[in-house]
Simulated assay, not measured.
Amino acid sequence: MTTTGLDYDPYEHARRLGIHVVYRQLRTGNGLWVPEIRTIFLQTRMRLIHERSVLAHELGHALMGHRDSTPRQEIQADRWAARHLINPDELRSAAAASPDPGVWCHELNVSADILERYLRDDRRIA
């Protein structure tokens, strides 16, 4: 799968990988990868922009073979999600249209956390 940015569909990606996505009330966090049952649990009733970002983050855990959640693995999963959810050309276009990163999040359909991780990793945009 080579698509990035707005063309990247984490729901379709999960389906292709045979990973189940289940919505349920979670006590902590907004998402959880459970490798033993190839399932990602997502918090119910998240805003769609946040849900898309959380699902991509959890797919990052799945595809990198993470079995627990260390601070290092959380950064790796955010980085993986950011690289798939944000296309550099789309980001440049959003940045040219507005100086407000909140607008960029809306235009790119990503959470502020994912945008922040992308910008930390790729200073060419800022």
Rank of each mutant, 00 (worst) to 15 (best):
I75W: 05
E36Q: 07
R47M: 12
S53M: 09
T70I: 14
G60M: 07
I49R: 15
Q76G: 08
E74K: 03
M64A: 06
R79W: 04
I40L: 09
L59W: 00
P35Y: 12
R67L: 15
E74D: 09
R72T: 04
Q76W: 00
L26K: 11
V34R: 11
N30E: 12
V34C: 05
S69V: 06
H50P: 02
P35W: 15
R83M: 13
H57P: 00
R67W: 10
N30A: 05
I75Q: 12
R27D: 05
G31I: 05
E74L: 11
L48N: 13
S69K: 12
Q43H: 00
L63V: 13
R79D: 09
R38E: 08
G65S: 13
A81Q: 14
R52Q: 07
R72L: 03
R79Y: 02
G60A: 07
A56C: 11
V54W: 03
L26S: 11
E51N: 07
M46Y: 04
L85I: 09
L85V: 13
T28I: 05
L48F: 10
V54A: 07
L85S: 05
H84A: 13
A81G: 10
L32N: 13
V34M: 13
G29R: 09
E58I: 07
Q73F: 06
R47W: 04
L63H: 01
L63K: 07
A81N: 11
L48P: 01
T70N: 14
L63T: 13
H84K: 15
R67M: 14
G60Y: 06
L48C: 06
A56K: 11
H61C: 05
R45M: 12
D78S: 14
D68A: 15
V34A: 10
G29P: 02
I37N: 12
L55F: 02
W33L: 05
R38M: 07
R72Q: 06
V54C: 10
L55W: 08
R27W: 00
A62Y: 13
G65F: 04
R47Y: 07
H57I: 03
L42D: 02
D68T: 15
A82Y: 07
R67Q: 10
E36A: 14
A77L: 08
T39Q: 11
S69H: 15
S53N: 06
S53A: 09
G60S: 10
G60Q: 10
E74A: 10
Q43D: 04
H66R: 13
P35R: 14
L63E: 15
I75P: 01
G29Y: 05
E74C: 08
